[in-house]
């Protein structure tokens, strides 16, 4: 057991050394009372179109850094470091592609398992899912969750929230439906695996298109930039109206909707895959083993 003790000792020593180094003030004065210049820059210029601020004397035209958002975090996510977020979304995309590759099955096999489950339940005289009262209330709650997640995503540029947050909130809906109403309910209301795959591919494609559209529209004039989200002062091509319906719009709201589609549909696929019983997969693995020797 000396190996285990070695691991424990080294982890403890590293923790103590790290704690001492940080408490000596490596990460800034302790405790921090002033805000860092980078964070201050984003916070001051995201909704500011015309006020020059003394803290940043070099910036004479603040409209160039305008992000049409009153919330600094969404502004940073989809404007100041938008390309970064696009690629992070694609990491999420490929992780779910990997999960689907592991838990693969054809539509014919899915149809078989559905028929068999219904037969089993009919022969034992049972219903799928919980009691009728629970089912009705769950349906109401499902509707509420979807509305709330859409509200979180659509208000992303004004209040705390956004595509990621809305998508995470949406993820609870398929989970609840599978637990209370059985997984065939998701199929019946159209939340099939392939539909969800299509939806999340669409979400990623919308994000990519929104990033490229300004460049395509600006060919010849050389006044547009990739992921040029907001109508900046100096740009000739100004695609996304900054105001509409009485609130700030910009392009952030479109990115948030696309992100909600990508994240929410991705989670639905994961729960559909997880809800399929284990005997079904064992049969598929055995069959593949026979086919490939």
């Amino acid at each position: 057991m000396s190996k285990k003790n070695l691991v424990i000792t080294s982890i403890t020593l590293t923790s103590i050394v790290l704690g001492l180094i940080i408490s000596l003030g490596v990460l800034g004065p302790i405790p921090l009372t002033s805000i860092r210049p980078l964070g201050l820059f984003y916070a001051l210029f995201m909704a500011n179109r015309n006020i020059t601020i003394e803290v940043f004397p070099l910036i004479v035209n603040p409209g160039n850094f305008w992000a049409a958002s009153t919330e600094a975090i969404t502004a940073i996510l989809w404007d100041y470091r938008g390309l970064d977020t696009l690629f992070e979304t694609s990491v999420f995309f490929f992780a779910i592609i990997g999960s689907i590759a592991l838990f693969r099955f054809t539509e014919k096999e899915e149809h078989e398992i559905r028929k068999k489950t219904h037969e089993n339940h009919a022969s034992e005289g049972k219903y799928l899912g919980l009691s009728l009262i629970t089912k009705t209330i769950t349906k109401i709650i499902l509707f509420t969750i979807i509305v709330v997640s859409a509200a979180i995503a659509l208000h992303g540029q004004l209040t705390p929230g956004g595509g990621f947050q809305g998508g995470s909130a949406f993820a609870v809906a398929p989970l609840l439906a599978i637990a209370a109403l059985s997984r065939f309910y998701l199929d019946d209301i159209g939340f099939k695996k392939n539909t969800m795959l299509l939806l999340r591919t669409m979400g990623l494609l919308i994000i990519a298109l929104l990033a490229i559209i300004p460049v395509v529209a600006g060919i010849g004039s050389w006044q547009a930039y990739i992921m040029q989200n907001q109508p900046k002062e100096w740009a000739i091509i100004q695609l996304f109206p900054p105001k509409g319906l009485g609130v700030l719009l910009g392009s952030l709201v479109y990115y948030n909707i696309a992100e909600l589609l990508a994240v929410g549909a991705g989670f639905t696929i994961i729960f559909i895959l997880l809800s399929i019983p284990e005997e079904f997969y064992k049969k598929i693995i055995e069959k593949e083993g026979v086919e490939h020797g």
Binding site: E71, I73, T74, I152, P160, G161, G162, F164, Q165, S168, A169, A171, V172, L175, F267, I270, F271, L274, S275
Partner: peptide
């Protein structure tokens, strides 16, 4: 508050559900 919205659903709901399954 943004992190609260995302992490409440993910940390308490999704992680636990996936691990229990």
């Amino acid at each position: 508050p943004d992190i609260v919205l995302a992490y409440a659903a993910v940390g308490v709901g999704v992680y636990s559900a996936v691990m229990i399954i």
